[in-house]
């Protein structure tokens, strides 16, 4: 994908299995939205091959469209409509696409309950709070019971309780309804909690990918050990903290004071990785990650 002569996406290679939740993780401007818009069929890639549910998105017909749910970053539409009217109206478009296996649309009352908007069913959309509006957006995204759901930064503006409810909804969609979900976020913790596969984007390319487990193993790093000995401060970085400490204490015994071992958490690792990619300053992080990735293949 290219704007003018600048490639904004490069070598994005992504395959999703049915019922899988994939998180596209990355800082602002990493190319998350561009990627998702290409997959939604709202934007043409300048090169490369894209297949979504077996179809090139830009050529997807209405039947293809009916199998896909879209939640964009911000919607302000239909402000004058009432919540229930809007969901029931938009759901009607999906009725002809019901199959023996999938009943379409999602009955409005169940849907309202699922997203926690029952109390606001008769409210005007423009009167909803930011978090309620976001839930409505999600409700519209799933009213047609999509097989594939795109969520672009779905939890921005949600308070912690609403965020947790949303996470439960995502689990429910993926586990019970076998919905494949591709979501973008810049919150690593959220990606860890929701996704089967995390793909980290920066500068328009994939800099790391894996299950949350794999990633945290891969990204876990040197531990930093600080101590004082004979009034002098020392700092040492090592992968094998336990071994280093054993030697340290054997050699210096009681001379070692104020001992501190700190291991970078996943968040630190992620931020360092992204920083390195964006600034081009090599601190060895990315090389190590790639090296480990090769080894685990």
């Amino acid at each position: 994908m290219r704007y003018g002569t600048v490639d904004v996406l490069n070598g994005i290679d992504l395959t999703a299995q049915r019922g899988e939740v994939i998180a596209l993780l990355g800082p602002n401007g990493a190319g998350k939205t561009t990627t998702i818009e290409i997959l939604e069929g709202f934007r043409l890639p300048s090169a490369g091959s894209v297949r979504v549910l077996g179809v090139e998105p830009a050529r997807g017909d209405e039947r293809w469209r009916a199998q896909i749910g879209v939640v964009l970053q911000s919607w302000r539409d239909h402000g004058r409509w009432r919540v229930r009217d809007l969901l029931s109206h938009l759901g009607d478009y999906y009725a002809p696409y019901a199959t023996d296996l999938i009943q379409r649309p999602w009955p409005v009352d169940d849907l309202l309950a699922a997203v926690g908007l029952t109390a606001h069913a008769n409210a005007r959309v423009s009167r909803l709070s930011g978090g309620q509006r976001r839930r409505l957006d999600v409700a519209v995204g799933i009213v047609g019971r999509p097989e594939l759901l795109f969520l672009d930064e779905p939890t921005v503006g949600l308070d912690p309780a609403a965020r947790r409810e949303f996470h439960e909804l995502v689990h429910r969609l993926a586990d019970l309804d076998q919905t494949t979900i591709l979501l973008t976020t810049h919150d690593l913790a959220e990606a860890e909690k929701l996704a089967d596969l995390i793909v980290i984007l920066a500068n328009g390319r994939i800099i790391a990918r894996g299950s949350p487990d794999q990633l945290s193993r891969r990204l876990t790093t040197d531990a930093e050990i600080r101590w004082t000995c004979d009034g002098q401060r020392h700092v040492h970085a090592t992968m094998d903290a336990t071994g280093f400490l054993r030697d340290l204490l054997r050699d210096h015994g009681d001379g070692v004071q104020e001992l501190e071992v700190r291991r970078a958490n996943l968040e630190d690792a992620y931020l360092a990785l992204v920083h390195e990619e964006e600034t081009g300053i090599r601190t060895g992080w990315a090389d190590r990650v790639w090296q480990q990735q090769e080894e685990t293949r």
Partner: peptide
């Protein structure tokens, strides 16, 4: 107006939404 507030994009995201 509908293009500015995203109503049209919503219609585009829905099967036969533009026609409706």
């Amino acid at each position: 107006v509908d293009r500015e507030d995203g109503t049209l994009l919503r219609a585009k995201a829905i099967p036969n939404g533009m026609l409706g």
